[in-house]
């Protein structure tokens, strides 16, 4: 990801971790609605939803990031993301927080050796005593790149 003067991130909880997504990639944030499962697709897709008349697929961030599934709670939200091609995809997170303003010096693209799913991650932020993992939205949404990330 290109580092602008300051980075605005939408942060979300997935499991006990905090992930951040560039605000420019986020179309909207909605409460979970009924998800219609789609058979014979990649496991990380929960199905499709009706977002104001448009049918969009929904990814489970838990499954994508290889966490255990859990019940969809009160706090859960669907982040509607816009891909490079302009397609909309929902990402189900356990909860979503405020916008985080990040100063460039707190952002690092160097990742610890042991991190999995490296292809999804563009950097890490040290904010106070918290670590926020910044996701590369296009890589997350592109199932083809998922295979390469296993390296």
């Amino acid at each position: 990801m290109e580092i602008r003067d300051e980075l605005r991130l939408i942060t979300m909880n997935v499991g006990r971790e905090i992930y951040g997504i560039d605000i420019f990639c986020v179309d909207s944030i909605i409460k979970p609605v009924k998800i219609t499962p789609v058979p014979l697709v990649d496991d990380c897709f929960l199905g499709v939803i009706n977002m104001r008349g448009t049918v969009i697929p929904v990814i489970s961030m838990r499954r994508k990031l290889e966490f255990e599934d859990c019940e969809i709670g009160e706090e859960a939200r669907i982040l509607v993301l816009r891909t490079e091609d302009g397609e909309l995809v929902g990402a189900l997170a356990d909860s979503v927080h405020d916008v985080l303003l990040v100063e460039p010096e707190k952002y690092s693209e160097e990742l610890p050796e042991s991190i999995r799913n490296r292809a999804f991650i563009s950097g890490v932020i040290r904010e106070d005593d918290q670590l926020v993992t910044v996701l590369n939205v296009n890589a997350v949404l592109n199932t083809l790149e998922r295979a390469e990330s296993g390296i």
Binding site: V38, L40, V41, P57, T83, V89
Partner: peptide, 15 residues
Amino acid sequence: PIGSCMNPPKVISGS
């Protein structure tokens, strides 16, 4: 249309 990034099977042609 149904999200193409999901790679739906041919039998599901839309929604």
